[in-house]
Amino acid sequence: MMFLEHNYTIDELVKRCKAGERKSQELLYKQFASKMMGVCLRYATDRMEAEDMLQNGFIRVFQKLGDFRGEGSFEGWVRRIMVHSSIEYYRKHHKMMQVVEESEMEEQGVNPVAVANLGAKELMLLIQKLSPGYRIVFNLYAIEGYSHKEIAAIVGITEGASKSQLSRARSILREQITKTEGKKYGYAG
């Protein structure tokens, strides 16, 4: 069992939050804020957007706390809410899903060492440069581990669209990695 400040377990904290104790809500927020900020950043274009998503997500967490029955990990539950709130953010702001042009992109080979050498911050920046539609599908599939079927349901697109968006997202990322690679080491040719 995880212990927090004042020796509250997550369970106790959740119970107090359900009773509407603001201090406990703040403790709970502090417990998960950094981790969830990491989640939101992957879905956002920049920090500001990510913080908006985080704020909306936590408000929903506190509103829906009564629905949490203690099945599965609490962190997993919070994370799912963050993901949904991030996708919702794009729906609200009409930035949703550009149509994928089916023009086949030439698959570029990427040096695995190059990818492995990139730090988390650099990878984060690469994802943030993707357009929202690609970014969401790539995040849901590659990092969250959802299937195309699940993604189709969550995002409201067809499974086929999910698949093509994923492969397009990968292509763009590879392209970008090759570019940064080139910048780093100069054009080796």
């Binding site: 804020a33 990491g38 913080e51 985080l54 492995a116 590659a142 990092i143 990322l173």
Partner: peptide, 21 residues
């Protein structure tokens, strides 16, 4: 390719600004 992203980004943490709370 996906794994690299997952391994590096899944545990990514950064503190949000105070105005979020």
């Amino acid at each position: 390719f996906d794994d690299v992203f997952r391994n590096k980004l899944d545990g990514f943490e950064t503190e949000p600004s105070a105005k979020v709370w």
